[in-house]
Design a protein around this nucleic acid. Structure first.
Length: 466
RNA sequence: GGCGGCGUAGCCAAGUGGUAAGGCAGAGCUCUGCAAAAGCUUUAUUCAUCGGUUCAAUUCCGAUCGCCGCCUCCA
């Protein structure tokens, strides 16, 4: 039975879709004003695990993942670069999908962009103006918190206990708002401003939160199943999405709210000033592989902070090598016909352990442990020659099922060596048969320089790339 | 000032009122002509500290120390 920790209730809840076997999922995507960092990708990897696990459970999925391609930062940066918004964001959008694909993050069914949904946002704002949930002030449109008594139900923020502007970010004098907590739905844009859209209530640009309300409701309906995103979006972004959407529709916006915790780097907040800020691309440039990064990102349950360290990332590289070696070895092993019932049981248990772990609010740590236990057991059996042909098929199927969610094994590709290397390996085997170890060691060193590692096993020589 | 989370072996970590998953690193072993690689085994009398509740606490309660986050830029 699949259970999620629902931020809305603050409790672990059994997951029950609103409509039969169909799940409608919205995950907040990136603001495409620069390259996404590994913290961003922790959340997006979580979204991917959520998506894949829902499919694993047999649900039919509509997954919407937005790209925020308009906000003040983008407008300013684009202006600085003397580019249009589209020109400015295009390379970052391309880069984002490139990174995302490399990390094995499945493409969502729908990936809408804010700039393509301005009319939808305008319509919601019109509705909110009509029903008294919004008001105009100095050309901008604000949401009237006092018209939505449930405001705060997601983040559970006690506004009474707060010092106004405790974070130093609230500039209450800047806008003429009825209430300091009221937030902008539409920001006035004067005729001199390059970026603006015309609306019945005046020219301007959308506030940050309205895009998600508009795109979620357009593609998933006024009420849908799951809304997910990073913990920092809980307030104000998601709180405001709820206020806007429910204020306009009068219906519950999303049934389950899932939030992923942040990652830290070497125990500290990731920040540019600390010099521990890494984009996905930074890590690739350091020689790390996308799957190891993915492994690290999913090795800790999404709802707990993850401490990213390079020691762990090095470890993840090795762990993945072990997993891939395992699958390859199992595939290539010379087995006798038959079916070892003990091993079948072990494989079945691993799969059920995996599922039980994921059912428990996506506990990926325990899910990985189930996989590792299977690998260890089968390795032992391989060494004892107790793996039989039927076991291999079943174990490989089990691995495939688990990996349909984790996505860490990668494609099993037939690697081909060039003939020069192949003949060197053959020459070394010949030298070894003739006990010409000087020559065989020489060849081994030569191959090592070429990045080929040899493994002398009792079944012959195996090779792999470093 | 308000609110939330965390502190488990060298590192990353899961976890539960009944005595500590998993991965990496380390060590030992197997294999090997020797290596390497690979595989296996092993690694916390103990879960920040101090009290309390309990037959029993890492797990519940309280205090203390330390770390992280949110309180209208944020994944």
């Amino acid at each position: 039975m699949l259970k999620f920790h629902n931020t809305l209730s603050g409790q672990l809840e059994e997951f029950q879709p609103l409509n039969g076997n169909e799940v409608r999922l919205y995950v907040c995507g990136p603001t495409v004003w620069s390259y996404a960092h590994i913290g961003n990708f922790r959340t997006f990897t979580f979204g991917d695990i959520l998506r894949r696990y829902l499919k694993f459970k047999g649900y039919r999925l509509t997954h919407v993942f937005n790209l925020t391609d308009v906000d003040d930062r983008i407008i300013n940066e684009a202006a600085k670069a003397e580019k249009s918004i589209d020109e400015f964001t295009a390379p970052f959008i391309d880069a984002f999908w490139e990174d995302s694909d490399a990390l094995g993050i499945e493409r969502p069914e729908i990936a809408p962009r804010a700039t393509h949904h301005i009319p939808e946002m305008i319509r919601i704002i019109e509705t909110l103006l009509e029903n008294g949930h919004a008001y105009e002030s100095e050309g901008s449109i604000y949401y009237r918190i006092s018209a939505f008594p449930e405001y705060g139900k997601l983040s559970k923020i006690n506004f009474a206990g707060n010092i106004s502007g405790a974070s130093g970010r609230v500039d209450t004098d800047k806008y003429d708002k009825e209430n300091a907590q009221d937030f902008a739905l539409w920001k006035f844009a004067g005729a001199d401003e390059a970026t603006g859209w015309d609306a019945s209530f005046g020219r301007g640009r959308p506030g940050w939160h309205i895009e998600c309300s508009a795109m979620a409701m357009k593609y998933l309906g006024e009420t849908f199943d799951i809304h997910a995103g990073g913990i920092d979006l809980k307030f104000p972004h998601h709180e405001n999405e709820i206020a806007q959407s429910e204020g306009a529709s009068g219906k519950i916006f999303a049934k389950y709210w899932l939030h992923s915790e942040h990652l830290k780097v070497e125990g500290e907040t990731m920040s540019k000033s600390l010099g521990n800020y890494f984009t996905f691309r930074d890590l690739l440039a350091k020689g790390y592989t996308p799957t190891a990064i993915r492994y690290l990102l999913l090795s800790v349950p999404y709802h707990k902070q993850l401490n990213f360290t390079f020691e762990t990332l090095d470890g993840a590289e090795h762990t993945l090598e072990r997993l891939r070696d395992f699958r390859k070895r199992l595939n290539e092993a010379k087995l006798s016909c038959g079916d070892n019932q003990d091993l079948q049981k072990i494989a079945k248990k691993s799969l059920s352990d995996f599922e039980a772990a994921m059912d428990d609010n996506l506990n990926s740590s325990v899910a990985l442990a189930a996989l590792h236990n299977l690998v260890r057991e089968v390795n032992t059996s391989l060494a004892n020659d107790t793996v039989l042909t039927a076991n291999r098929d079943f174990i490989l199927q089990t691995i495939d099922k688990i990996d349909s969610v984790l996505g860490i094994f990668g494609e099993e590709k037939e690697e081909i060596l060039d003939t020069e290397i192949e003949s060197l390996i053959e020459e070394r085997q010949e030298a070894r048969r003739n006990r010409n170890f000087a020559r065989s060691d020489e060849i081994r060193d030569l191959l090592s320089e070429k990045g080929i590692v040899l493994e002398d096993t009792k079944d012959g020589v195996r090779w792999k790339r470093k």
